[in-house]
């Protein structure tokens, strides 16, 4: 799974990213408008601002629920039958005539405070220092699935072929060559924007600064790096009395381990 780059941040790289971070702080201060928007942003907590942090912004207003990303992910990562790394949930809310259906693409949030990394007993899953992505070293993983329980987003599963934990890795094989992830590449509504969240010149940074964005299950304190525009977090359990909500996850169910 490792693409060959060194895991510890080299001194040179550190100085470079630190410089970028300082630039980011300076621009944010000058821009001014960003400060107001930042007040409504999901809390950043201990998140480092001076390093490359890849993330994704999903504009739910542009998602048409075509599942092209689901299929692209399946093909790109060669995900076995019965499991999925990414999928699109259908969320139906309201009563006629005020009923509506929205789509919610799901993928690994590549959290800045990942619970899965904390519980991993072998250190097989870790945060890559060079881009902040959470990956699994399948040469070390024992397949205990502790991480799958710890993930509040239910993103991890047992790969029935390799029998190790598996999840979305934001297409590190593409990303490290300067391409965008496969789901972003294939999205025909251009609902998915990929980039370095901390780079003030990136499209994703500008869009996050301009739009009201939210993340899934912020209260878990995981500080996800997948942002949504137009996210409604109501589901069947948290709806108001009399409100109609139905969530269809469309997620493939993992086969039971034998």
């Amino acid at each position: 799974m490792n693409d060959g780059s060194d895991r510890p941040v080299g001194r040179r790289k550190f100085l470079k990213t630190a410089g970028q971070g300082a630039a980011a702080v300076a621009t944010a201060g000058v821009a001014g408008g960003g400060m107001h928007a930042a007040a409504t942003k999901p809390s950043t907590g201990t998140r480092e601002k001076n390093k490359v942090q890849y993330g994704m912004l999903i504009d739910l207003r542009r998602c048409i629920g075509c599942q092209a990303c689901t299929v692209a992910c399946k093909a790109e990562a060669d995900v076995p039958m019965g499991v999925a790394r990414s999928w699109v949930e259908y969320v139906e809310k309201g009563l006629y005539p005020n009923a509506g259906r929205t789509f919610l693409p799901r993928l690994c949030n590549h959290c800045s405070e990942p619970h899965c990394v904390r519980v991993c007993p072998t250190g097989a899953t870790y945060e890559r220092p060079q881009d902040g992505l959470i990956v699994i070293d399948q040469g070390v993983c024992i397949g205990c699935l502790y991480c799958a329980h710890a993930c509040p987003y239910d993103m991890r599963f047992l790969n029935p072929v390799t029998r190790f934990a598996d999840k979305c890795d934001m297409c590190i094989h593409r990303v490290s060559k300067g391409l965008v992830p496969s789901c972003v590449n294939t999205c025909q509504g251009r609902a998915r924007i990929f980039g370095d969240v901390n780079d003030p010149n990136s499209e994703i940074h500008k869009l996050i600064a301009k739009n009201p964005v939210s993340v899934i299950r912020e209260t878990y304190g995981t500080q996800p790096n997948v942002y949504y525009i137009g996210l409604d977090t109501t589901d069947e359990n948290t709806k108001k009395p009399g409100q109609y909500v139905r969530v269809t996850t469309n997620k493939a169910k993992s086969p039971k381990r034998t």
């Binding site: 904390r118 007993p121 072998t122 250190g123 097989a124 993983c141 024992i142 205990c144």
Partner: peptide, 21 residues
């Protein structure tokens, strides 16, 4: 692979904060 629980990915790193470890 269960030996990885005790040796982890670095041979000198025998303990990490995971309760399973």
């Amino acid at each position: 692979r269960a030996l990885n629980l005790l040796t982890s990915n670095f041979w000198f790193m025998v303990l990490n904060p995971s309760p399973m470890n």
